[in-house]
């Protein structure tokens, strides 16, 4: 494959030195495209990226292959993609932790804004503030009152240090000037178990995983972190209704290394957003419980840099740094 593309480039160069660049771009993609994913096979991120890889393969007639590079919460993948040639043949499927990790630990070795060229956002989902029935509050206002009246007395859980469940709570506590003790669990599954059995009285968790436990009455949803109420739970208010300006969503999407030609970014964005409008994509994301959130490269850039600044502040103020 490599040899073939080299040959192709060589022939093009011979054909006309001045026009070779445009000829090559017009032909994008003329080789296999790697989609690097910073998580293990089998997870949500992996499944979503494989789905889109398949759609892109069909659309462009070139193979888009998913390469799993798990490690360091996705930082390993970002570091690899950052140094890849910015030619459109290496892109990355990222998720919200992409703009959180560098603030947690500068040693991760990438800048989420400067080192990458956003392609398109794919989907997003809010977190929910969930409480155990024994905590005896039924609205966000009551919760705020109870937490503020007892600084440092209550615990809250998360899926791990710097996870969006953790930062959602830190952000809320900082906005209401409250205090609670953070108990990190290992992953969302662990957290839910602790929450359901009442070992921690409250926590944020993703809407998708929480739904069955809300329906069974094991957990009470107080508020959603998205700017507006979720269509799935229209009765649950947004945190922002009580705490103006509060907003946070977990998202995912595609980026390329900085310096990737604009034409390639546009071609990929067009193909991805086109696919996301298909019935197949709609059915898939509905099953997953997340909202399709296709965006332009510019909009995605704003989301990434907005999150990067927002979380850097929260993390600094809360004193969460890993070294």
């Amino acid at each position: 494959m490599k040899l073939l593309s080299l040959l192709a480039a060589f022939t093009l160069a011979l054909a006309g030195l001045g026009t070779s660049a445009t000829a090559q771009e017009a032909a994008y993609p003329n080789d296999l495209v790697r989609i690097v994913v910073g998580s293990s096979p089998g997870g949500t991120a992996d499944t979503v990226s494989r789905l889109i890889a398949e759609a892109l393969t069909e659309k462009f007639g070139q193979t888009f292959v998913v390469e799993n590079l798990p490690g360091a919460g996705g930082a390993l993948a970002a570091k690899t993609v950052k140094t890849a040639a910015p030619d459109g043949y290496t892109i990355q499927f990222i998720f919200s932790s992409f703009s959180i990790l560098p603030s947690l630990n500068p040693a991760v070795g990438y800048d989420p804004v400067k080192d990458f060229e956003p392609i398109a956002m794919v989907s997003s989902a809010p977190n929910l503030l969930l409480v155990h029935p024994s905590f005896e509050v039924s609205t966000l206002a009551e919760w705020i009152e109870k937490v503020k009246a007892n600084p440092g007395k209550f615990d809250y859980g998360s899926g791990g240090i710097g996870y969006s469940q953790h930062l959602s709570m830190e952000m809320l506590l900082q906005s209401i000037d409250g205090e609670a003790v953070h108990i990190p669990y290992s992953g969302s599954g662990d957290l839910l178990g602790a929450l359901i059995s009442g070992q921690v009285p409250f926590a944020f968790d993703t809407l998708t995983t929480a739904i069955p436990h809300i329906e069974s009455g094991a957990l009470i949803p107080l508020a959603t972190t998205s700017a507006e109420r979720s269509e799935i739970l229209p009765d649950v208010p947004a945190v922002g209704e009580e705490v103006p300006g509060y907003e946070l969503t977990a998202w995912n999407g595609f980026v390329a290394p900085a310096g990737t030609p604009k034409e390639i970014i546009t071609a990929l964005n067009d193909a991805i957003t086109e696919y996301l409008q298909s019935d197949e994509a709609k059915a898939f994301f509905e099953k997953l419980g997340t909202k399709i959130d296709a965006s332009t490269p510019e909009e995605f850039k704003e989301t990434i840099s907005g999150d990067y600044e927002k979380f850097a502040k929260v993390i600094e103020k809360a004193g969460i740094t890993a070294q």
């Binding site: 798990p70 490690g71 360091a72 919460g73 930082a75 390993l76 570091k79 947690l104 630990n105 991760v108 070795g109 791990g160 240090i161 710097g162 990190p184 669990y185 290992s186 969460i320 740094t321 890993a322 070294q323």
Partner: peptide, 20 residues
């Protein structure tokens, strides 16, 4: 790997592959 309670990397010797 990364300590669950604090996020600090232990015994990774600077290798990002060992952070998990």
């Amino acid at each position: 790997g990364a300590d669950v309670m604090t996020g600090v990397f232990r015994f990774t010797f600077g290798a990002p592959e060992l952070r998990d």
